[in-house]
Design a protein around this nucleic acid. Structure first.
Lengths: 108, 108
DNA sequence: CGAACATTGACACGCTCGTGTTAAGGTGGC
DNA sequence: GCCACCTTAACACGAGCGTGTCAATGTTCG
């Protein structure tokens, strides 16, 4: 039987049960459920949780940053808009973009 | 003489002078400076500011979301790490990633 | 020179985030 | 059947975000 309950999963990932429920509500790490409603964390979710911790520690990210990153991936329109804004905002990036456009022309 | 002062720029972008200074400190919209230290907003910055407003309104983004997006662009290591996490976290994305790996193998 | 603007820095304030705790009830294994 | 765990919902609370405002000082322009 795989699928740890929230307490067991918490003990193995350095999160609290409270935070596991929170992360689920944010859509970041969503476990399956047993027939009676218990959260069931499999290896996949445990790895996500450990990796999430590591990401936060190494880069000082906020949880909301990851939520936003997930949103960027799911909403292409948003991604395009943000990329466009950054391109307009960042001189160097804009130059690079022009260069790549040039390369594409050369390659064609 | 191009380069509006902070008050003029604010009047033309629906931001307050206070917020323009805040956005500068965050690195999102950074005007040049006159010899005596006054902020000088050119067309480029005015457009960035208007576009930033629009982004926030249309997608309900927080300013910190844009800060994070800018960071993603500037730190490739961070971008790779976050993309990797999302790939592991999102079933569909993972499947697509496998597909693309497959395509790459076929193309080779 | 004086009025109107700019600069930085500080204090303040409401709101949301991340997190814990507690309450009221359901589930499961010994 | 008990005890330990789970469920959701609520109250709480410090920290930080987004903003305004005020103070003390410098700049520009008529």
């Amino acid at each position: 039987m795989d699928g740890l309950k929230v307490g067991e999963a918490a003990a193995r990932t350095a999160w609290s049960p409270r935070m596991l429920r929170y992360l689920e509500r944010l859509g970041l790490v969503v476990p399956t459920r047993t027939a009676t409603g218990y959260r069931a964390y499999d290896l996949r979710e445990l790895n996500q949780l450990r990796a999430l911790n590591e990401l936060r520690r190494r880069f000082g990210l906020a949880i909301s940053d990851l939520v936003f990153a997930a949103r960027l991936r799911r909403e292409p329109e948003l991604r395009k808009a943000v990329d466009g804004w950054l391109a307009g905002a960042d001189d160097l990036a804009w130059v690079e973009w022009e260069q790549r456009k040039h390369e594409r022309l050369l390659a064609a």
